[in-house]
Design a binder for these strands. Structure first.
Lengths: 221, 221
DNA sequence: TTTATTTTTTAGGCTTATCTAAAAAATATT
DNA sequence: AATATTTTTTAGATAAGCCTAAAAAATAAA
């Protein structure tokens, strides 16, 4: 049985290396978990010893099959709980992250099976993030592109926001960006990489790089 | 913010002293939490310092108002989650204890409010245990008596099982004892304090003291 | 009431997960 | 290629929550 802490390390290693599967640095993990790099070094030794990561000193880290399996299961639980909170308990999408961070560590396979069934076997969570199935397979999203990478006059239907922090989601609420909304690129501003967009053919606004790179969708027209 | 561990100490102190509100011994806590009495002594010092318990060396322990409030909230959460697991996710009543032990520590007032509402403001959990409301008030159960205390020929309708361990509950399933079932005392056996009972006017069996003292209900006739 | 037993506390240790400071390795710059 | 900078690791500490063994206090028995 892994500790809450160990699970969080595996999760963040997975998230930082998805979908590229490249090696992750000690510093990246430290920054993301808000802890000291020295602490990360200690933990990496321990996770390697448990055969959950591949790790050689100074060389970065990646998940073993076993480590990946655990990480994906945590993410599955996180996203199923977020779906429950929004769909069943009527939370808004910006309120659920912190609660799901706790719920994802509840240990019970039967619970997750039953929750999954109760929710109707959802494939995506309320932010559009894909929910891996019981075998760790993610639903198909290969036709999704990043808003950030769209050219002028291209238009997407929003499928996913790849960050469930309440700050970002509240901001998106304010400018009426939601899953399903249509966004057209009106202008690309090279100096700060921001873009001017038209939301649902009505509302014009400017999105900073920090925001546009977190919005994914399918190309329209 | 209290740790998971501190919350468990407060919870067990509450449960051991309910409803009598008498002082609890270090040993009782140790046995119930399956840890060493020395560890309990350490923790009691800490909880006293945080003003959550009244405690003087060698004199036993009781909850302060603040401590009681926290303990009752944990119990509230435990019982609401058990209700959710049984009523919403179709768990059987003997499967939910261990999962609720984890879920009771999830921190979010809003979550509990919303869960409470979703469940229809239940007053009792699937084992008939009273669920305290948001002010920490328990629903009325003063007309409930222990099966153990019934005299020969008295009959009760089962309202509550005061132990949600799966061992006991599976045993009760086996002999068809459930909430709502009627149990009549046929004979009291003084040598081992067991009783012979008739369940739902059909099935006769013998209940040991260990079982009968955990069954509560209202007197019929 | 004195002695024996049980309960509780203290003292000293261990493990986990964190920290800071310093050393070592890798990477970037001149 | 030599030096400077950044990243990573090691070394040594700390706090939480547990342990065992021994001492102290309370309770029960003789």
């Amino acid at each position: 049985m892994l500790s809450y802490t160990e699970e969080n390390y595996l999760k963040i290693i997975f998230i930082l290396s998805y979908p590229t599967a490249k090696e992750i640095s000690t510093n990246d993990i430290a920054k993301n978990l808000n802890i000291n790099a020295a602490s990360v070094s200690d933990m990496l030794k321990k996770l390697k010893q448990k055969n959950l990561i591949d790790y050689a000193k100074y060389q970065g880290v990646s998940l073993t099959q076993e480590g990946r399996k655990i990480a994906v299961n945590i993410i599955r639980k996180h996203r199923l709980w977020e779906t429950f909170l929004v769909n069943t308990l009527n939370f808004s999408w910006d309120e659920v992250h912190d609660i799901a961070e706790q719920l994802e560590h509840i240990q019970s396979n039967l619970l997750i099976e039953k929750l999954y069934q109760f929710l109707g076997f959802p494939k995506f969570d309320p932010h559009g993030e894909p929910i891996p199935d019981e075998n760790g397979t993610f639903p198909e999203t290969k036709d999704w592109i990043c808003l950030n990478s769209c050219k002028k006059q291209q238009k997407i239907e929003v499928k996913s926001i790849t960050d469930d922090s309440s700050d970002l989601l509240q901001h998106l609420d304010k400018i009426s960006v939601n899953i399903g909304v249509k966004i057209e690129v009106i202008e690309k501003n090279s100096y700060d990489k921001s873009i001017d967009v038209l939301i649902n053919d009505i509302k014009q606004c400017t999105l900073s790089k920090e925001i546009s790179e977190k919005i994914y969708g399918v190309l329209l027209d």
